[in-house]
Structures are given as structure tokens and as C-alpha cells.
Write a protein that binds this DNA or RNA. Structure first.
Length: 254
DNA sequence: TGTACGTTGAGAAGCTACGG
DNA sequence: CCGTAGCTTCTCAACGTACA
């Protein structure tokens, strides 16, 4: 949540607010002006894009700066604007707020009708190609009015994205998922070893961990993933040969 | 010096609250 | 119900600044 500010949910027209409190708020419209100006690094271009005058953009930014007490932009005369670190942080949250407001509007419009709006989800790349297509297709068939937006990330970025509200849903492993995130197990995956057809261990129904340590391994070198698989060995007092670290797509190919 | 761009000031328009 | 006051937001014009 945005702390210390009180955005007004007005759309179009003015919202008269008497008294000194009125100067302590800003509107979603002003937030949108700020975000677009930040994205384009220009008041002029933002004004063109939003079909308003330059002073309107400038005034909106100043209002937000006054309310928050933050300097959001560094002004470069005749050279546009650049976001300050505070401006970047606020813009990130402002985008979320605008998205939520848009979602709320769509939700309100869809009340009494079928489910609509946008569902943003993210998945771990190694099993995203395996499970997501079928899941997404079934979901789209059932809820055709929902726009699905899907990303692929490593475990650390997935957890961060959920925490920041960038995504509503994630498909990933149960690795260091914070308590504040609801985790529902869908599948249980036993670890598999994939070997070449002419490998000494080829053709076996099962392989013991101790048998694997003698051979070099290929592991996905992503945050937590590599540590997780190595921990399976160390938990049993085993030390595998130094694994190589290819790209995720190389792993998929292997 | 011309051009591009952001800011400032003045005035208009639109909205709501309030009182008669 | 209507007129007025107060407020916000908008546009236009002018100005200041930086760069080629």
C-alpha cells in the first residue's frame, strides 16, 4: 500500500474538496500524468500522449511532489525530465495502483456478469512449457473475458514479483516461499536423473544418490534451484562432482 | 540565434456545497 | 429550485533556460 498519501478515486471532472485537507490529496488522473511523464521522460510528450496541455502535466507532478514531500523528477531545462530514486519507487507503486483501479473498474462493470479483467501470472521456466499451455487453454475456455498475462522467472524474482503485487498468481516450487504468500501444492515431483542412452546408468529403473556423485552433472544455475538439488546430496552426506551451469534453455534441451 | 522544452500567471469552465 | 461561493483543472500566452 502507498503510505502517507490519499489518492482520490475520481475520474473526469473536478472533485471539490473544501478546507486544508483538500491540498493533501491527489487524484488517479494526476498519478497517471506522473507515470506517463516518467515513462516518456518528458512533460511535452506526456501531454501529447494524454491529449492535455503541458502545464496540466507539470501541475499534476508538482501537486504530487507537494503532497508527498518528495522530489520525483530532476528537471533538465529544454532536455526533459529524469526520475529521482524516490520518483522511480513511487512510479512503480503508482503503476500498481492504476492497474488496481483499472481492475476495480472492470470488476464493477462485470458485476452480475461473467468474470473479466486481467490475470497476471508467472511461472518457473522449467515446467512452464509443460503445464501452462493446457492450464491456460482450459482457463480461457472457461473465462473468455479474462485477459491472461504470463511471465517466466527464477524463484527469487517470482517471490519478489508476488510480494510487490506485480503478479496475482505464480506456478513454482515450494522453495523459501514466505509465509505471507499462500502456497497450494498442485503436484509432487520426485527428482529424476536424465542420462545419455550409452551412459553406464542408462536403462535402470532407479538410481541411488551415491551412484550419481561419481558423474559430472548439469544443473540449472539459478537462485535457489542449484542449491536445492545440491542439498539433496549434502543432506545424505554426499558431495557430487562440481556441476556445470548452463543456461535454462540448455537444461531444457538436456 | 533559432529551436525545444518546462514553468508560471491569468482567465475560463465545470462541479459541488450551501443558503435563501 | 436557484443563485452564489469555493475549489479544481484546464488552456493560452509569456517567459526562462539549454543546446546546436
Amino acid at each position: 500500500m502507498l503510505s502517507g498519501i490519499a489518492p482520490s478515486l475520481s475520474r473526469g471532472g473536478s472533485v471539490p474538496q473544501r478546507g486544508s485537507e483538500s491540498m493533501r490529496q491527489f487524484t488517479l488522473k494526476q498519478l497517471r500524468y506522473f507515470v506517463v511523464a516518467g515513462e516518456l521522460s518528458s512533460v511535452t510528450q506526456a501531454a501529447r500522449k494524454l491529449h492535455v496541455s503541458q502545464p496540466s502535466i507539470s501541475a499534476a507532478i508538482q501537486q504530487i511532489e507537494e503532497v508527498t514531500g518528495l522530489q520525483l523528477f530532476v528537471r533538465h531545462h529544454a532536455q526533459g525530465l529524469s526520475l529521482t530514486p524516490s520518483g522511480k519507487q513511487l512510479m512503480h507503486r503508482a503503476r500498481q495502483l492504476l492497474r488496481d483501479a483499472e481492475g476495480l473498474e472492470k470488476y464493477a462493470l462485470s458485476l452480475g456478469e461473467e468474470i473479466g479483467g486481467e490475470l497476471r501470472l508467472v511461472a518457473f521456466p522449467t515446467f512452464a512449457p509443460v503445464f501452462l499451455p493446457q492450464l491456460l487453454r482450459r482457463y480461457s475456455d472457461r473465462h473468455p473475458s479474462v485477459s491472461l498475462y504470463c511471465d517466466e522467472m527464477n524463484q527469487v524474482d517470482i517471490v519478489r514479483g508476488l510480494g510487490q503485487g506485480d503478479y496475482e498468481l505464480a506456478f513454482t516450487y515450494d522453495l523459501q516461499v514466505p509465509e505471507e504468500i499462500d502456497f497450494t501444492p498442485l503436484y509432487r515431483f520426485p527428482p529424476y536423473a536424465v542420462v545419455a542412452a550409452n551412459h553406464p546408468l542408462s536403462g535402470r529403473d532407479s538410481i541411488g544418490l551415491a551412484e550419481l556423485v561419481a558423474y559430472p552433472m548439469v544443473l540449472l544455475d539459478w537462485p535457489l534451484s542449484r542449491e536445492y538439488f545440491l542439498s539433496i546430496f549434502t543432506h545424505h552426506g554426499l558431495s557430487p562432482l562440481s556441476p556445470t551451469a548452463p543456461s535454462p534453455w540448455t537444461c531444457c534441451a538436456v
